[in-house]
Amino acid sequence: MKKLLIPFLLLLVMLISACGANNEETTTSDTTETEEKSSETITYQSENGPIEVPANPQRVIVLSTFAGNVKALDVNLVGVDSWSKMNPRYELDGVEEVTDESLEKIIELDPDLIIGLSTMKNVDKLSEIAPTVTFTYGKLDYLTQHLEIGKLLNKEKEAKIWIDDFKSRSQAAGEEIKAKIGEEATVSVIENFDKQLYVFGDNWARGTEILYQEMKLKMPEKVKEMALKDGYYAISPEVLNEYAGDYVIFSKNADTETSFQETQTYKNIPAVKNNQVFEVNAKEFYFNDPITLEYQLEFIQKSFLTE
Rank of each mutant, 00 (worst) to 15 (best):
D246I: 03
Y90T: 06
D289Y: 06
K151N: 00
L217Q: 04
F193H: 13
R169L: 09
L15A: 14
M215H: 08
E184P: 05
T119S: 07
K267W: 10
L92Q: 07
I177M: 05
I291D: 11
E96R: 01
L11K: 11
N192F: 08
Q171F: 10
K283L: 05
G245I: 03
A18H: 10
G49E: 07
E209L: 02
L103E: 12
F278K: 12
L103M: 15
Y90P: 00
S168G: 00
T27V: 12
I149F: 02
T265Y: 05
Q145W: 04
L73E: 04
T65L: 00
F278A: 13
M215T: 01
R206L: 15
A18V: 13
V239P: 13
L73F: 06
E35K: 14
D110M: 08
T258H: 04
T132W: 03
Y286P: 07
G79V: 02
S251V: 15
V80N: 05
L73D: 08
Y243W: 00
V239S: 15
T32D: 14
N122W: 03
N241Q: 13
A282T: 08
Q196Y: 08
K302H: 10
E101T: 14
V80F: 00
M226W: 05
Q296L: 11
S29G: 15
T144K: 09
N203A: 12
P111D: 01
L217N: 07
K71P: 03
T31R: 12
K224F: 09
F250R: 09
I61F: 03
I42E: 12
E47D: 11
I269D: 03
A159I: 15
A234N: 07
S17E: 06
V199I: 15
V78N: 07
E96T: 10
K216G: 11
K151V: 10
I115S: 02
N268E: 13
L109R: 06
N281Q: 14
Y142S: 07
I190Q: 01
S64K: 14
I177Q: 05
S29F: 15
E35I: 15
K224S: 12
E25L: 13
N69R: 09
D30Q: 14
D230R: 13
N274R: 02
R59W: 12
G182S: 00
S170I: 00
A227E: 04
E96L: 06
M219K: 05
A244H: 08
F135A: 05
T306S: 15
I114Y: 10
I149S: 02
K167M: 01
